[in-house]
Amino acid sequence: MTFDERYFAVGRLDRLSYGRSLIHRLDPRVKVVATLLFLITVISFPPHEIVALLPFFLFPVLLLTLGGIPAGFILRKIVFVSPFALTIGIFNPVLDTRTVTVIAGLPISAGWLSFLSILLKFVLTTGAALLLVATTSFPGICHALRRLGFPPLFVSQLLFLYRYLFVLAEEAMRMTRARDMRTFGRRGLGVAVFVRLVGVLFLRTVDRAERIYGAMLSRGFRGDIPMLRKFRISFGDLAFLAAATILLGAFKFYPVTEGIGRLAQGVWP
């Protein structure tokens, strides 16, 4: 993806996170905890598991629909994610050629199974992270982290990072445009120009930090960033967490898919 596309995709995700749907209104702590539970459960399946992973797609589908998040957008983001997991996973079919089963005359090797399993886990885990941030504003996530025991100093600077992410990205974008407009062929795109560009951006950033610090001092900053927002965990939040835990547990400990499959085979033999 180009600079602009990446930037606007992040911006769109950020805008979505300020929605007002049922899912957006849940307490951020609950969503963070539920997401972590989801991830651990998905990851805990062994390397060759496939069918048991399928019911887990219910979660992203619920978040997408109840949260009013455009599915195509999230899918595109998943596809463009750095493909490290898949690069490593694709070796499995080559390395593990033991035939496990034959489906419709096609021999299926253990390597393909484990690759498919990695692929499913990849989509589920990547989707979970994206959906968390699409349904929870980043400041909300930071509040959750602070409440979950992360050091205030860390959370404060994380909030600064978020606040200036877009400001600096736009600055970088303006600088790159200025470079590209006067670049012909490959000259000017090399390391020397890049280093100076980043150097200038760095100096501007430090000056900006200085101005921000001045603005903070002017408004009485004394080393601690006070925040006024009391999240109260409501009944709805607890119900959500409980439902998520029960479903996750059910999907983890019962072979739901196979059960349904056998049921179907029993009904229509």
Partner: peptide, 12 residues
């Protein structure tokens, strides 16, 4: 504190 945050954004 602001310097750290802003430098994080700078890395991005």
């Amino acid at each position: 504190i602001p310097l750290m945050g802003v430098l994080g954004a700078f890395i991005f």
